[in-house]
Amino acid sequence: MIRTIGLPAETKDGERRVALEPSAVKSCVQAGHDVLVQAGAGRGAGFGDADYEAVGAKIVASAQEAWSADLVVKVKEPQRHEWAYFRRDLVLFAYLHLAAEPELARALMDAGVRAYAFETLEERGGLPLLAPMSEVAGRTAAIVGAHYLAQGSGVLLGGSAGVPPARVVVVGLGVAGTMAARGARGMDAEVTGIDIDLHRLMEAHERGIVTATLASSEHAIGEAVADADLVVGAALVTGAKAPKLVLEEHVRSMRPGSVIVDLAIDQGGCVETARPTSHSNPIYETHGVIHYCVTNVPGQYPRTASRALSAAIAPKLVRLAANLDDPLLATALNVADGRVVHPTVADALGL
């Protein structure tokens, strides 16, 4: 029986989002739950403690008090110092990305936590709790790509009179990739979309989201990347580690000062030379190519991202608190009874 819901402040580097805005907390209170909000949890997204108190939440002074709730909801995966709050009767609801976080998976199993992941919840063929942040991340990819391209090769995405526009390659045209392509096209870049789904490629071309399409293959990706000024990696396999589609030899073929934005880095990255970075240190260079591989890209737009995420989470959270075995939420369950129970996640972890 879930009586209390905890909302701790996020502690990941540069993370200013909050999982629930006040209106979502109100929904939980109206459903009969006590909501414990850590003081300052919503400040980065523009929500004050008084906003939460006004809808019936209880403001608690420490993270420990928020984590003492029956069910804890947060944005990003628990950081190592938060593992001390794990316990056998805890229910956790957050982005977990366990395929790329084996140590976290082991900590959850050892503590007996019942853990549900936003990113694996499937509904009508989609990922309703991943899509809002994929949209924000995709839009951001075009912005940060343009920014670092200026610092690198000095190429303007849209070009100029007598100067051709930049070449952008987007690998994977799901929600994130589509939004990245739209953003780059909005700045008048030439955009090539690569995907394994021919129908998706046709639709993107017909809608003008891309200027060219390629069916995914190692050879096609290699040729496209070699001529690219900006590459956006956005390949996703739900619950699994991202496939390595842009190989190191492809990166080596790119011009110095070109840019790679790997949006799949949460799941291990789809670029072979990608490694996780943070908002404090967002980029590094490999083979002269700038890599931006921040693992919580939407955190830099906390107001927009928090409101979008909260709207998606709130109805699912109320259902979860009412029934931990709700069949509509079954695909979100990653860890229970000391083991990884999501088959794709378990396979990715070799369990």
Rank of each mutant, 00 (worst) to 15 (best):
L149H: 02
G233W: 00
L230M: 06
V113Y: 05
A100R: 02
E223P: 11
Q38G: 04
P256E: 12
A336N: 04
A100G: 09
S160E: 14
Q38D: 07
G233C: 08
V345A: 06
L92W: 06
A9E: 15
R200W: 09
V18C: 08
A184M: 14
T238R: 13
I313Q: 02
V175D: 07
G125T: 05
L71K: 01
A117F: 11
A176N: 02
V251Y: 03
V210Y: 01
Y301W: 15
G162P: 01
N323V: 05
H97P: 02
D110R: 14
S62P: 03
E15C: 06
I260D: 01
L317Q: 05
V289Y: 04
S310A: 11
V72H: 09
S258H: 03
Y284G: 07
S160V: 09
D34E: 15
A314D: 08
G56N: 01
I260R: 01
G40E: 06
G269K: 02
A212P: 02
R275W: 15
L71G: 00
A228S: 08
G159Q: 03
A31G: 05
A146V: 01
I196Q: 11
I194L: 10
R167C: 09
T192A: 10
L198T: 15
I221H: 03
L230T: 01
P315G: 11
S68K: 09
D188L: 13
A234L: 11
G48Q: 15
E82I: 06
V171M: 08
K316A: 11
V37F: 02
D70V: 03
I59A: 13
T286L: 12
G193C: 09
E101V: 11
E272C: 04
A99Y: 09
G338Q: 00
E82N: 08
V75W: 07
A176G: 06
V75P: 02
G42V: 04
W67I: 05
V289K: 01
S160Q: 15
R43G: 10
I283Y: 13
A54W: 11
G126C: 11
L98S: 02
Y148D: 04
A141M: 03
L328P: 12
D188P: 12
P128V: 05
L149V: 01
P22N: 06
L198I: 13
E101L: 13
E103Q: 15
T344G: 04
G112S: 12
A215C: 14
F86W: 12
P302T: 07
Y292M: 08
L324D: 05
V289D: 00
L36V: 03
P256V: 06
I283K: 12
